[in-house]
Every structure is written in C-alpha cells, then in structure tokens.
Amino acid sequence: MKLIAVLVAVAVLVGGWLIRPRTLQLDSARTGDLTLQNFIDEHYEGPGHRLAIAVIGDNSMAFAGRGANEHSRFEIGSVSKAMTGLLLADSIRRGEVKLDQEVGSLLPLGDTEAAGVTLEDLATHYSGLPRTSTNPFAATRSFVASLSAGNPYPYDVDDLLAQARSAGTGGRGQPEYSNLGGALLGQALARKAGKSYPQLLRERLLDPLQMQETTVPTSEAGAAPEGYSSGGRMEAPWIQDGYAPAGGVVSSSGDLALLLQSRLRGIGVEALAPKRDFEDGDKIGLFWITSPLRGTDHAMVWHNGGTGGYRSFVGLDLERKRAVVVLSDVAADVDDFAQELLAAP
C-alpha cells in the first residue's frame, strides 16, 4: 500500500506540474515599428503572449506587436461598450432616441424597474442594474462557465431581456458598473433602428471607418483565437449575442486605431464628453471615462476591457492629439502599460 501511495503522490506531482499556473512570456516574434518594439521591451512587465499596440496621432499611426500585428484579432471585451456609446451618440444625432428616454419605450420590458431606466442612466452606469444577471440560474451558469474556462455570457437577446425584467435597480442614481445595462442599451438602439446589434455596428460605425477586421462573432468560426488566463490556462472564446454591446466585439489594433483617429479628428466626440461623476473621482460620458493621465497634467479619455483570455485598453489624450491601443491575449491588466504609452513623449 505504501508503494501505491507513493506512486499516486508522484502522479499528483507530475499532473500538478503539467497544469500548474505559470507566467506566460511575450511571444518572441516582433512586428512593426522599432521605437514601439523598444517601448514594449522596456516597459511591458506583466505576463503576456500575443500583444498588439498602436500609437495614433491625428495624421499618423504606428504599430508594433509580439506574435501579432495590426491585423491580428483580439477579443476587446468592454471596449465594446465604448463603441455602443458612439452608437448612442449617433442615434441621438439622427433623432432616433433621446438621452432622457426610458429604455422601456424601446424594448419589451413591461412594467418592470428596468423599463424606467433612461438611456443616459445606462450609458453612465447610473441605472442601478446589477453587473450581470442576479437570476440564480444565470448566475450559477456564468459562475460554472468562468470556473471551467468557458463563456459566461451565452445568452441571446430574449435571455437578456428576461434577465433585465427580473433585475432590480436598487442602486439607481449612483455609479455601479453594469454589463447588463450596457448590453440593454445596445440592444435598445438596435431595436429602434430595426436591425440586429451587429448590423447596426457594421452600418453605422465599422463600414464608415472601413474597420473591416472588426466583427461581432456569433459562432466559434468567427471567434478570436483562444486566449489565456493570468495563470496560463487556455480560455474559451466569449461568443456573445445578447451581451454583445457590452463585451462581444472582436477587433484589431489597426481597426481600433482608425476608430481613435476619427475621434482625434473631432468625429463623434460628443460621446466622450463627461456627463456625470464616476468611480474613484473619474467622470463618465457615454461609457467613455475621463481620468487624469498619470505623469502629466492632462486628462485621458479611455475604456478598457477584459474577457476570460484577453485584456484591452483604448485611450486618448485629446489635448496632445495622441491615442493608444493595447491588446493582449492574456487576462492580465494592460492599463498601466497603456497609460505609460499614452503619456510617453
């Protein structure tokens, strides 16, 4: 029996070693601009694997990467909300919706608390809606999915609406980050325009800016490659339908550079303008957050994102007319690195 126990212990050690958490290193294949490659070498400290970065001026773009280039596709997570904020500003400009309009006038939410929330509440995270559904079945399903490196948002639009109907808005009037609210807003805009959210995004934001590498995947075939947890575990793609406006977009640093450059040129910047106080002394516009840019006396307008296997950051210094994109396929925050890049001379 002692021998068997020792053999099992050895098997435990070998198996544990094989699945151990580990710090991933950046891919050795370098791409793009030499100056930016050096910046990565000198400043990127976290775990990494594929990394793509871009520095954008109002008339310039520079790209670099490790194991990735400006065409490589990454899940951008909640940077999708920043796109939804731009769509909201566009819908207002078209006269389709108003900021003080209740979302219940656009979506079949019945006589529920969520129905009375305004579009501005949703876009500024003041709706009081929870971060995600509090429905026990959905919450359990999402928790199990996150433990098993799966997709915690496998819900269609009808599921999303059901979750919104059953959600409370107890914290309304105070900033409380809500993926449920972000998704609801995007679906409301799409419903008003008579389109699906992917169609709306394509026609009103992606095609005008020629962002051809950006998609909203609806199946594994269109998904980004699998990413990694901070401990190196491979994570399934987050293919989102109902929650797509809050976190389901896949994009490239090249496409996001086009998106940011158009903001530096003054296109659609009303979505970026601060409207309300947000967490930690920040301000928030239509999902776009305004914060002090560390190491400077400037402000930055930004959004970050995360999925099971990805992290992303887009930020603009409107005063200097400089913007950055940082995309990583490891779920380790890139915010500090991105801010250093934005603040760099």
């Binding site: 958490p21 433990l147 575990r233 380790a332």
Partner: peptide, 14 residues
C-alpha cells in the same frame, strides 16, 4: 489555480 490572479501572486506559491 483557476481563480487566483496570477499577475499579482507568484505561481510558485501554488
């Protein structure tokens, strides 16, 4: 292994 943020803590602890 699944839930700890291994960006914050060294994996050798595991």
């Amino acid at each position: 292994r699944t839930t700890v943020d291994w960006q914050e803590f060294p994996p050798w602890l595991w």
